[in-house]
Amino acid sequence: MEDSLELTLKPEWDELNIVRERLEHFLTEHQFKVDDLHALIMVSSELVENAIKYENSQKMTDTFEFSVDIEGRSVIVEVRNKILGNDDIQLKKLDETIQWIRGYQNPFEAYVERLKLISAKELGENESGLGLTRIAYEGSSVLDFYVDENNILAMSAVYKI
């Protein structure tokens, strides 16, 4: 049985259904418990949604990569997509969001704080960062990212079973 799932996706919203179906099948084959399955589907969906939104906002039509790797008691979900070479602003925002989440002792506190900011309309829907915060809290995952020399942004979430 393969310990990895890899998909090449188009930046189209319908691709999320493919991710969910293939991931559910993969995790069920590996006998994941239902709570872990729900968490990983959510983590994967949120990361893929962000990738699709980015591609569409930059009017890019490149395919991007999605992978899930089981390594012992860790599951690494990763999305890799090409970014514009001069997109320092997006990367800075991404870094700030992840550092902000890490600044809280408990991801629950970060999530509640994010909800407060959204309800007070201090953050719009497109800048809420709620998806990443949800990955950290509800998905109990550690977020990270890097950009390689080919301008491929790899966004990952590590989930402990």
Partner: peptide
Amino acid sequence: QYMNSSTITPLISVLE
């Protein structure tokens, strides 16, 4: 069965 994080925003708007 599932809701994305974008669903939470209108929910909390109505609660607020």
